[in-house]
Protein backbone atom coordinates (compact mmCIF):
# COMPACT_ATOMS: atom_id res chain seq x y z
CA UNK A 1 0.00 0.00 0.00
CA UNK A 2 1.47 3.25 -1.05
CA UNK A 3 0.46 6.83 -0.48
CA UNK A 4 0.32 7.05 -4.19
CA UNK A 5 -2.44 4.45 -4.34
CA UNK A 6 -4.67 6.83 -2.36
CA UNK A 7 -3.83 9.82 -4.51
CA UNK A 8 -1.92 11.32 -1.59
CA UNK A 9 1.51 12.89 -1.32
CA UNK A 10 3.44 14.68 1.35
CA UNK A 11 4.85 18.13 0.81
CA UNK A 12 8.69 17.95 0.73
CA UNK A 13 9.00 21.28 2.48
CA UNK A 14 6.36 21.42 5.22
CA UNK A 15 5.32 17.76 5.34
CA UNK A 16 1.56 18.48 4.78
CA UNK A 17 -0.21 15.54 3.33
CA UNK A 18 -2.22 16.60 0.33
CA UNK A 19 -4.49 14.99 -2.17
CA UNK A 20 -3.12 14.94 -5.67
CA UNK A 21 -5.30 15.81 -8.60
CA UNK A 22 -5.17 13.49 -11.57
CA UNK A 23 -3.13 15.73 -13.83
CA UNK A 24 -0.85 18.72 -13.77
CA UNK A 25 1.82 20.20 -11.59
CA UNK A 26 0.61 21.03 -8.20
CA UNK A 27 1.83 22.93 -5.19
CA UNK A 28 1.25 22.73 -1.45
CA UNK A 29 -1.74 24.80 -0.32
CA UNK A 30 0.12 25.64 2.94
CA UNK A 31 3.66 26.58 1.89
CA UNK A 32 3.25 26.80 -1.90
CA UNK A 33 6.13 24.40 -2.55
CA UNK A 34 5.72 22.03 -5.48
CA UNK A 35 4.32 18.72 -4.45
CA UNK A 36 5.05 15.48 -6.27
CA UNK A 37 4.27 11.91 -5.51
CA UNK A 38 7.69 10.94 -6.94
CA UNK A 39 10.70 13.04 -7.91
CA UNK A 40 9.91 14.79 -11.13
CA UNK A 41 11.61 13.33 -14.15
CA UNK A 42 13.77 11.26 -11.84
CA UNK A 43 14.72 8.65 -14.41
CA UNK A 44 15.32 11.08 -17.23
CA UNK A 45 17.46 13.43 -15.12
CA UNK A 46 19.42 10.58 -13.66
CA UNK A 47 20.04 9.19 -17.09
CA UNK A 48 21.24 12.53 -18.40
CA UNK A 49 23.61 13.07 -15.49
CA UNK A 50 24.86 9.52 -15.69
CA UNK A 51 25.55 9.77 -19.40
CA UNK A 52 27.40 13.04 -18.91
CA UNK A 53 29.43 11.39 -16.14
CA UNK A 54 30.25 8.45 -18.41
CA UNK A 55 31.42 10.79 -21.14
CA UNK A 56 33.55 12.73 -18.68
CA UNK A 57 35.02 9.50 -17.34
CA UNK A 58 36.96 8.98 -20.57
CA UNK A 59 39.06 12.16 -20.47
CA UNK A 60 39.33 11.78 -16.69
CA UNK A 61 41.35 8.65 -17.24
CA UNK A 62 43.22 9.65 -20.38
CA UNK A 63 44.39 13.12 -19.41
CA UNK A 64 46.99 13.78 -16.76
CA UNK A 65 45.56 14.60 -13.39
CA UNK A 66 48.69 16.22 -12.11
CA UNK A 67 51.97 17.51 -13.50
CA UNK A 68 55.04 17.71 -11.31
CA UNK A 69 57.57 20.22 -12.63
CA UNK A 70 60.86 19.75 -10.86
CA UNK A 71 64.18 21.24 -12.00
CA UNK A 72 62.73 21.96 -15.37
CA UNK A 73 61.67 18.37 -15.74
CA UNK A 74 57.96 17.88 -16.14
CA UNK A 75 56.29 14.65 -15.25
CA UNK A 76 52.62 14.31 -16.04
CA UNK A 77 50.61 11.46 -14.63
CA UNK A 78 47.15 10.19 -15.38
CA UNK A 79 45.31 8.33 -12.66
CA UNK A 80 46.29 4.96 -14.03
CA UNK A 81 49.92 5.88 -14.70
CA UNK A 82 50.13 7.13 -11.11
CA UNK A 83 48.74 3.82 -9.88
CA UNK A 84 51.26 1.94 -12.04
CA UNK A 85 54.06 4.19 -10.83
CA UNK A 86 53.15 3.47 -7.20
CA UNK A 87 52.78 -0.22 -7.86
CA UNK A 88 56.11 -0.52 -9.71
CA UNK A 89 57.88 1.31 -6.92
CA UNK A 90 56.59 -1.12 -4.32
CA UNK A 91 53.89 1.02 -2.75
CA UNK A 92 51.23 -1.50 -3.64
CA UNK A 93 48.91 -0.80 -0.66
CA UNK A 94 48.83 2.85 -1.66
CA UNK A 95 48.41 1.85 -5.28
CA UNK A 96 45.47 -0.28 -4.29
CA UNK A 97 43.82 2.53 -2.38
CA UNK A 98 44.21 4.97 -5.24
CA UNK A 99 43.03 2.38 -7.72
CA UNK A 100 39.95 1.54 -5.72
CA UNK A 101 39.06 5.11 -4.82
CA UNK A 102 39.77 6.70 -8.15
CA UNK A 103 39.18 4.06 -10.76
CA UNK A 104 37.07 1.29 -9.39
CA UNK A 105 34.58 3.22 -7.27
CA UNK A 106 33.46 5.71 -9.93
CA UNK A 107 33.25 2.90 -12.42
CA UNK A 108 31.23 0.64 -10.14
CA UNK A 109 29.05 3.57 -9.15
CA UNK A 110 28.19 4.26 -12.73
CA UNK A 111 27.53 0.59 -13.38
CA UNK A 112 25.34 0.40 -10.30
CA UNK A 113 23.34 3.46 -11.26
CA UNK A 114 22.91 2.13 -14.75
CA UNK A 115 21.69 -1.14 -13.34
CA UNK A 116 19.22 0.62 -11.06
CA UNK A 117 17.93 2.84 -13.82
CA UNK A 118 17.54 -0.03 -16.24
CA UNK A 119 15.75 -2.26 -13.76
CA UNK A 120 13.37 0.51 -12.75
CA UNK A 121 12.64 1.31 -16.33
CA UNK A 122 11.96 -2.32 -17.13
CA UNK A 123 9.62 -2.44 -14.13
CA UNK A 124 11.58 -5.25 -12.52
CA UNK A 125 10.00 -6.72 -9.44
CA UNK A 126 13.00 -8.70 -8.26
CA UNK A 127 15.49 -8.05 -5.39
CA UNK A 128 13.97 -4.81 -4.27
CA UNK A 129 15.81 -4.86 -1.01
CA UNK A 130 19.21 -5.55 -2.52
CA UNK A 131 18.66 -2.82 -5.03
CA UNK A 132 17.71 -0.38 -2.33
CA UNK A 133 20.82 -1.32 -0.38
CA UNK A 134 22.91 -0.85 -3.47
CA UNK A 135 21.46 2.60 -3.88
CA UNK A 136 22.35 3.48 -0.30
CA UNK A 137 25.91 2.31 -0.77
CA UNK A 138 26.20 4.30 -3.97
CA UNK A 139 25.04 7.43 -2.27
CA UNK A 140 27.28 6.87 0.72
CA UNK A 141 30.48 6.01 -1.13
CA UNK A 142 30.19 8.56 -3.88
CA UNK A 143 31.70 11.52 -2.02
CA UNK A 144 34.87 9.57 -1.08
CA UNK A 145 36.00 9.63 -4.65
CA UNK A 146 36.69 13.30 -4.18
CA UNK A 147 39.76 12.41 -2.09
CA UNK A 148 41.92 12.43 -5.21
CA UNK A 149 40.73 15.83 -6.22
CA UNK A 150 41.37 17.21 -2.76
CA UNK A 151 44.90 15.81 -2.83
CA UNK A 152 45.63 17.41 -6.20
CA UNK A 153 44.07 20.71 -5.16
CA UNK A 154 46.02 20.79 -1.91
CA UNK A 155 49.31 19.85 -3.57
CA UNK A 156 48.86 22.39 -6.33
CA UNK A 157 48.32 25.07 -3.71
CA UNK A 158 51.08 23.94 -1.37
CA UNK A 159 53.87 22.77 -3.64
CA UNK A 160 54.78 25.86 -5.56
CA UNK A 161 58.51 26.34 -5.00
CA UNK A 162 59.40 27.82 -8.32
CA UNK A 163 61.97 25.79 -10.17
CA UNK A 164 62.49 23.27 -7.41
CA UNK A 165 59.06 21.78 -7.62
CA UNK A 166 55.70 22.91 -8.86
CA UNK A 167 52.57 20.83 -9.08
CA UNK A 168 49.93 21.76 -11.61
CA UNK A 169 46.50 20.19 -11.92
CA UNK A 170 45.80 18.74 -15.30
CA UNK A 171 42.74 18.51 -17.48
CA UNK A 172 42.09 15.04 -16.10
CA UNK A 173 41.47 16.45 -12.64
CA UNK A 174 38.65 18.65 -13.89
CA UNK A 175 37.14 15.78 -15.83
CA UNK A 176 37.42 13.55 -12.81
CA UNK A 177 35.74 16.11 -10.58
CA UNK A 178 32.98 16.34 -13.13
CA UNK A 179 32.53 12.57 -13.05
CA UNK A 180 32.29 12.50 -9.26
CA UNK A 181 29.91 15.45 -9.04
CA UNK A 182 27.71 14.19 -11.87
CA UNK A 183 27.40 10.70 -10.43
CA UNK A 184 26.55 12.17 -7.03
CA UNK A 185 23.88 14.31 -8.66
CA UNK A 186 22.61 11.37 -10.64
CA UNK A 187 22.33 9.31 -7.47
CA UNK A 188 20.58 12.18 -5.69
CA UNK A 189 18.12 12.56 -8.52
CA UNK A 190 17.25 8.89 -8.50
CA UNK A 191 14.13 8.21 -6.52
CA UNK A 192 14.54 4.90 -4.66
CA UNK A 193 10.81 4.69 -4.25
CA UNK A 194 10.64 3.86 -7.93
CA UNK A 195 12.28 0.54 -7.11
CA UNK A 196 9.28 -0.41 -5.06
CA UNK A 197 6.62 0.89 -7.40
CA UNK A 198 6.42 -2.32 -9.34
CA UNK A 199 6.51 -4.94 -6.66
CA UNK A 200 2.89 -5.97 -6.98
CA UNK A 201 2.53 -6.04 -10.73
CA UNK A 202 3.12 -9.32 -12.41
Amino acid sequence: MRARDFGLASCHTCGLVVKLPAVGHVHCPRCASPVHSRKVNSLSTSWALLLAAMIAYVPANLFPVMSVVSFGKRQSDTILSGVIYLFVHGDWPLALIVFVASVLVPLLKMIALTYLLVTVQRKSYLRHQQRTRLYRIVELVGRWSMVDIFVVALLAALVNIGNLATIEPGAGAIAFTTVVVLTMLAAANFDPRLIWDHQGEK
Partner: peptide
Protein backbone atom coordinates in the same frame (compact mmCIF):
# COMPACT_ATOMS: atom_id res chain seq x y z
CA UNK B 1 -6.86 15.89 3.36
CA UNK B 2 -6.44 19.21 1.60
CA UNK B 3 -6.08 19.08 -2.12
CA UNK B 4 -2.97 20.32 -3.77
CA UNK B 5 -3.39 23.31 -5.98
CA UNK B 6 -2.77 22.95 -9.65
CA UNK B 7 0.00 25.02 -11.18
CA UNK B 8 -0.22 26.62 -14.51
CA UNK B 9 1.04 24.19 -17.09
CA UNK B 10 4.66 24.67 -18.18
CA UNK B 11 6.49 22.01 -19.98
CA UNK B 12 9.70 22.48 -21.92
CA UNK B 13 12.85 20.79 -22.86
CA UNK B 14 14.45 19.04 -19.91
CA UNK B 15 17.49 21.25 -19.34
CA UNK B 16 19.37 18.47 -17.64
Amino acid sequence: VPEAEVDTEHKGFPVV
